[in-house]
Design a protein around this nucleic acid. Structure first.
Length: 155
RNA sequence: UCAGCCGGCCGGGCGGCCGCUCGGAGCCUUGCGCUCCGGGAGGAAAGUCCGGGCUCCAUGGAGACACGGUGCCGGAUAACCUCCGGCGGGGGUCAAACCCCAGGGACAGCGCCACAGAAAGCAGACCGCCCCGCCAAGCCUUCAGGCCGCGGGGCAAGGGUGAAAGGGUGCGGUAAGAGCGCACCGCGGACGCGGCAACGCGGACGGCACGGCAAGCCCCACCGGGAGCAAAACCGAAUAGGGACGACACGGCGCCCUCGCGCCAGGCCGGUCUCCGGGUCCGUCGUCCGGGUUGGUUGCAUGAGGCAGCCGGCAACGGCCGCCCCAGAGGAAUGGCCGCCACGUCCGGGAGCGAUCCCGGGCCCUACAGAACCCGGCUUACAGGCCGGCUGACGCU
RNA sequence: CGGGGCGUAGCGCAGUCUGGUAGCGCAUCUGCUUUGGGAGCAGAGGGUCGCUGGUUCAAAUCCGGCCGCCCCGA
């Protein structure tokens, strides 16, 4: 899907991964959003370097959640869900860390998408503008907000 | 057909949409780009309990000690605490198939055997049984004596304790007893036969002596250098540490003005020690050179490899020949969602005496579980299914 | 990848090396004391010794295999 996005051509890929421990720790200092199934943490990057993708994510599933097979399953469902919702949040430069919990194993797929939508919308706002984030939450479900998102990658 | 036992194999299938990674080919606006084709978790990938390969470190060699491991016999294997076959012991039904066993040595030595019991390891004697002698007092009396008691001696049958008491049962024998004698059983056993061996069978003879624990220390035999792919090699930014050369400085003693020479001492060389042996002199300053951590590449997948056939072997396994290439990630890929069909399970309804079958719906969309350098094993977890063999019972031919 | 330790009463720990009786403190319960409570005193109850096999006459202890927790080193 990202291949046919016009902004991805020539520039950096629209979605990237967090790989270093320091990046995970930095994301933990940002805003957080909790549901029964996951915790979403994100840090707004102020540098607008074109070398990095605008949205980068990392997954954390600790050993306490379950055995290796169950942890792999949680990561795979989250990765697929993030890929599905990511094009709507390609606006600000954002490093997201999703901490998965055991309920993801048996939760419906639509519930995971719902959680990610709510979490990313809450977390993508600047830390000082907390009240604006609350008002922005219901806007993700409206299809009219798509124009706002399409405008931000061009900037 | 039923019951029991053993071994091997599989462990969802098909399709659609969207993705990840590796390899090959092609295209070009040469990007780690796009298109096409092909590959992409397991029997345990797990626990990390053993054995190796591989890599580095130490190393000139030998020996001893310490530590750790293994332990019936024969074979298999690169090797093993593994596997196969046999032996012995135990279990399974008293005679089954079959299953389990850390199974060397207790006359090399030390140690332990609680409680109970007289006694727990050169045997011993509490109650007791028996014989002989004495008998003041007490009792009985047929007036000899006896009981009780005292002294000397014999015995281990019986009682009782214990996990275990120096063969067991029976008969004879005796003052009472005792392998004292005999029969049977058990034990040791020269020797003979069978077997490569462990061991088995027979057994003159011995009258019985030799308790258990070595998963207590230990003895004997054999094996073991250490670490681990975050090993290791290469490419390579910034800052502190290495090497070469030059100058200065440089342990003690003796010869000696100094240089120099000789002797001694210290530091280094497998966990320790010994012997011969080897190598070096560590500081300060200047110049030059190389380079640990982060990152990248290699290691990193053709291997004690898999499958089929034939031959040898009871088997583990080995040999020959043919075919095949079968995961390579690395904040860690091998997937996400949906539909259908099998399978399992639960609920409701129906048929049936019942096993069971049919219909509808829900759940899991499957049990156990995810490669991290690679092999050989072991151990542990596992819904369900398939195949084969052995033993016993019943029925039929 | 390699190494070490722990698991015993509701809680914190001894006992394990050298095998035979499972003990200490707090907590719980009962009684005394006090107007009542606390404290104190006296007494009592409570343990599959993590699980499972084996050695032994006998296992918390010795040996093997699992399970859980914790801590190091690279």
């Amino acid at each position: 899907m990202c291949g046919k996005d016009p902004p991805a051509k020539g520039g950096p890929p629209s979605i990237g991964r967090l790989k270093k421990r320091s990046e995970f720790i930095a994301a933990a200092t940002g805003r957080r959003f909790h549901t029964e199934r996951m915790t979403v943490q994100a840090l707004l990057r102020e540098d607008t370097q074109s070398a990095l993708p605008r949205l980068r994510y990392g997954l954390t599933v600790t050993k306490r959640v379950g055995h290796a097979t169950e942890r792999n399953r949680i990561r795979r469902r989250l990765r697929a869900a993030i890929r599905a919702v990511a094009p709507r949040y390609a606006g600000p430069a954002l490093d997201v860390v999703v901490i998965g919990r055991r309920d993801i194993l048996h939760a419906p797929y639509e519930t995971l998408l719902d959680d990610l939508h709510r979490g990313l919308a809450a977390v993508a706002k600047p830390k000082s503008a907390g009240k604006a984030a609350v008002k922005g939450v219901p806007s993700w479900s409206l299809s009219s907000s798509g124009g706002e998102r399409r405008r931000s990658p061009d900037a």
